[in-house]
Design a protein around this nucleic acid. Structure first.
Length: 883
DNA sequence: CCACTCACG
DNA sequence: ACGTACGTGAGTGGG
């Protein structure tokens, strides 16, 4: 038996959206309506076993109903963007299911469904109409059953004419009269005021229809009589509006809407994109397509040895993407494995490191270095560094798929090609771990598998780039990507490759000093503790302090007593040992992390350290630094600051020059919040913390004491981090209530800042993301979490990310511009380090005067804000002196 | 491999 | 009632 299932697409999407909690996939796309829709489809297919299937959608804002009644559906809330963005996805989903869909300009889904059911009635076909809209009951007939959703969408109730009779005492036709009398607030259909469902049913049971009710109005009495008489025309119009149009000019081709079932592969691809993991399992499919099958269909992989290079050579012309594979997290020490080349026609070529580096591959090495040959690549920065250590230059990178993936979602923790392929539904790529194993078990697989893996990565890079180009365009990130991040990745690689010189002898000497001090401290601590223990073990220290010495427990960790600096500072008055431990910790940290840690990273041949800046880690857009981290070299304490002495120029007679932005984050905040007071502070070039203290405490400049300034400074930090009473109270060691008072007073004076904080959180809730001045995005799906902590965290992130992120944008812009000036003016000075708001250079003495001007100048004009940017410059024989 | 601690902006 | 300040990386201990 043939059976048609007709779905009211808009109605079900709305129901699903409001019935389900917010869901989103890792790219920030909301998916709750899609999810609800999907479960509904799966259930209908299972339970109804349709032979024909059609989903109807509304089209166009104005329908024929508006012609007689402008206010139709007026007063309705605008569809939330979280829902409207899901409509295109639902349409894709239907295509993946193989279910037909239909919409017609100027008509609503009801009318399309009305027309289909009329045809079905005439042809005696069975139909089930699925909707959340009671009006549709008017379509019920012997052939047509209406499935109305109940409580959200998890259940439906089936209405045939008999059931409607039983429930309302009405025929399906009379449903229209019911609405004519009672109206419908959601569609802004008036009906008769004061007539609700109860009255309307009573009237219809007595008279049968709107027309009959109006005709017999004189038989009635009291208020009811007046109301009906006064609103007779409203009732007639309401009935017209509620009547589903059943003659839509559409080709109702019964065969075109035949439903043949879905292709599990197509559907699973869709589910993977949407990250519907539970539904994927329900489909009972392998989690990824078998690799071999895909290979045969889509990609042929060739291994090119030295003898094959000449034959491969002409193919280079057609290379669309290249992948450089190496082993090791640190590109400065990684070993090159080989490279894959994809040529766009389903061919990929694998060339091993040995072959790449051979004399016969000169043409290939030149190709890598050729700036005019645009290359698409995954992680150009890593590749450039790895290749450079092998003597190969990489230039002409036109697209970087890892960098693009980061911009499209900077919170992702794994940009591996296998993940990206899965995310975009591309043919599967094996994960590195599955191919190589990990840790001590790392092994190169046999040549065939290796070539397969690397060739596939090259091909995937090309396909990914095609998708990502469009996404970047859509997000208005072209400038950010092509003019900032991509040039920066090259610049970073070049900075790292040059490295920074370290005075190894000086560092060792300092280490010896430390060792002596640490040893005497250790002895003193053992003495005070009454015996030796491992001071580096928080657990053992906890036993000593809180059990043996019986000091008060201030704070606990998941696993035991907390012994961090904050706790120890509170314990200082109780026992002499505490001070010694604090001192020990400071020195031990310096010794292990900074003396020994740095010494391990110095290349003995050159006496230089090559850090690795990572451009795809920090969710705010900042850089991070690894192997070693040169962005956390001590400075706050005098003892630690000495470490900076060992960072020196690499050439005789050169100097270290450092320039840092003054209060860049608060200046950015002044700009984006447009707060008058904050802007004024910076245009007048005032000390911002003093100014804040003056305003918050209502005192004159001379009355601001050190304590007031310290509090104001903490409030300013708090503001940038996304203020909370609790956080500020912790920081200032005051009560929550007092912290609350500070914050309130702050907002009283900086009202523009308060407005910004409110707005940005609202914006994050609406859009699902926040962005920086350069359109860098960060998705915050958790802003809608019901858990207070999770939601609050997202709210603070919403406040902080545009500030920290814009500051990151600005210094990145400055780096690109300074590098450009150095090149243009053929200067020998070199950019060495970036520490979030600071740039460090080594400069020949004769360039010092020029650089002292050039660097802060470029930093200050990197981006024009409505407050000035300020950069201070200093220099000296080493990094400590350049302060 | 995780928890803890601590260095930086 | 909830119990965190934002963003990172590295060393050490202990299961």
């Amino acid at each position: 038996m043939e059976k048609l299932v007709l779905i009211d697409g808009n109605s079900i999407a709305y129901r699903a959206f409001f019935a389900l909690p917010p869901l989103s996939n890792s790219s920030g796309l909301h998916t709750n309506a899609v999810y609800g829709f999907t479960t509904m489809l799966l259930r209908l297919i299972d339970e109804q076993k349709p032979t024909h299937f059609l989903v109807a959608f509304d089209a166009g804002k104005v329908t024929f109903r508006h012609e007689g009644y402008q206010e139709y559906k007026g007063g309705r809330e605008k569809t939330p963007s979280e829902l409207s963005e899901q409509f295109p996805v639902i349409k894709d989903l239907l295509r993946a299911f193989g279910i037909s869909q239909y919409q017609l300009e100027g008509y609503e889904a009801d009318d399309i469904i009305g027309t289909m059911t009329r045809i079905a009635d005439e042809q005696k076909k069975q139909v089930v109409v699925v909707t959340g809209d009671k009006d549709m009951l008017q379509l019920a007939s012997e052939q047509v059953t209406i499935a109305l959703t109940r409580k959200g969408i998890s259940e439906v109730e089936l209405y045939d004419p008999a059931f409607i009779q039983e429930k309302y005492g009405l025929t399906p036709d009379q449903i229209i009269d019911l609405k004519g009398l009672m109206g419908d607030t959601s569609d802004n259909i008036p009906g008769i005021p004061g007539v609700g469902e109860k009255t309307a049913l009573k009237l219809l049971h007595e008279y049968g229809s709107v027309e009959q009710v109006l005709e017999h109005v004189e038989d009635m009495k009291g208020k009811m009589k007046d109301k009906i008489r006064d609103h007779a025309e409203d009732a007639r119009m309401s009935k017209r509006l509620a009547t589903i149009h059943r003659e839509v000019p559409m080709e109702a081709d019964w065969n075109a809407i035949r439903y043949e079932g879905y292709q599990p592969e197509t559907l699973s691809e869709m589910f993977r994109k949407l990250e519907f993991k539970s539904l994927l399992e329900r489909l009972d499919l392998p989690q990824s397509a078998p690799v071999n099958e895909v290979e045969k269909e889509e990609l042929q992989i060739h291994v090119v040895g030295e003898e094959g290079l000449e034959e491969f050579r002409p193919q280079l012309e057609r290379v669309t993407s290249v992948h450089v594979e190496a082993y090791g997290e640190n590109p400065h020490t990684a070993s090159l494995i080989g490279a894959g080349f994809h040529t766009g026609d389903g061919q990929a070529y694998y060339i091993s490191a040995e072959t790449l580096l051979s004399g016969k591959a000169r043409f290939l090495q030149e190709w890598f270095a050729d700036e005019t040959r645009a290359k698409t690549i995954f992680d150009a920065h890593y590749a450039e560094v790895v290749l450079a250590w092998k003597g190969i230059t990489l230039a002409g990178v036109g697209f970087d798929t890892q960098l693009a993936a980061y911009l499209l979602d900077p919170t992702e923790t794994n940009y591996e090609m296998s993940e990206q392929a899965r995310k975009y539904g591309l043919p599967a790529v094996g994960s590195d771990e599955s191919v190589y194993g990990k840790g001590a078990k790392y092994r190169l697989p046999e040549l065939g598998l290796l070539a397969e893996h690397i060739g596939r990565k090259a091909a995937t890079a090309h396909k990914l780039a095609e998708i990502q180009r469009r996404e970047l365009e859509k997000n208005e990130m072209n400038r950010l990507f092509y003019d900032l991040e991509l040039p920066l990745s090259k610049l970073l690689a070049d900075m790292e490759l040059k490295g920074i010189r370290v005075d190894v002898e000086g560092l060792k000497k300092y280490g010896e000093e430390l060792s002596a001090n640490i040893e005497s401290l250790q002895n003193r601590i053992y003495e005070l503790a009454g015996g030796p223990f491992n001071i580096n073990s928080p657990r053992q220290m906890g036993e000593i302090l809180f059990e043996k010495l019986d000091l008060p427990v201030i704070k606990k960790t998941k696993t035991g007593y907390s012994t961090d600096a904050e706790v120890l500072e509170k314990l200082e008055p109780y026992h002499e040992i505490v001070r010694q431990i604090l001192l020990y910790r400071t020195l031990a940290k310096l010794q292990s992390t900074y003396v020994e840690g740095l010494l391990k990273e110095v290349r003995p041949e050159t006496g230089k350290i090559h850090t690795y800046y990572r451009q795809t880690i920090a969710a705010t857009g900042r850089l991070s630094s690894q192997f070693p981290n040169l962005q956390n070299i001590p400075i706050r304490l005098e003892e630690g600051r000495k470490i900076r002495k060992v960072f020196t120029p690499s050439e005789e007679g050169w100097l270290i020059l450092a320039a840092d932005y003054s209060q860049i984050e608060l200046r950015v905040l002044a700009h984006i919040s447009q707060d008058k007071n904050l802007m004024e502070a910076f245009t007048e070039n005032m000390d911002i913390h003093t100014k804040t203290a003056m305003d918050v405490f209502g005192v004159s400049e001379s009355e601001v004491d050190a304590n007031m300034r310290r509090s104001a400074k903490a409030v300013n930090f708090g503001i940038v981090y996304g203020i909370s009473e609790y956080g500020l109270s912790q920081n200032l060691n005051i009560t929550r209530k007092d912290a609350g008072k500070f914050i309130e007073q702050y907002f009283e004076v900086f009202q523009g800042v308060r407005r910004y904080m409110d707005e940005i959180v609202k914006q994050a809730r609406n859009d699902g993301y926040v962005k920086t001045l350069l359109e860098r995005r960060r998705y915050l799906p958790e802003i809608k979490a019901s858990n207070f902590n999770i939601r609050s965290f997202a709210e603070r992130t919403a406040m902080n990310t545009p500030i920290q992120g814009t500051a990151a944008d600005i210094i990145k812009l400055a780096m690109v511009r300074v590098a450009e000036r150095l090149r243009q003016e053929k200067l020998r000075s070199r950019m060495l380090l970036q520490v979030h708001d600071e740039l460090v250079f080594e400069v020949p003495e004769e360039e010092l005067e020029l650089m002292k001007k050039l660097v802060p100048e470029e930093m200050e004009k990197a981006l024009e804000l409505n407050v000035p940017l300020k950069a201070d410059v200093s220099y000296g024989q080493n990094w400590q002196e350049a302060k």
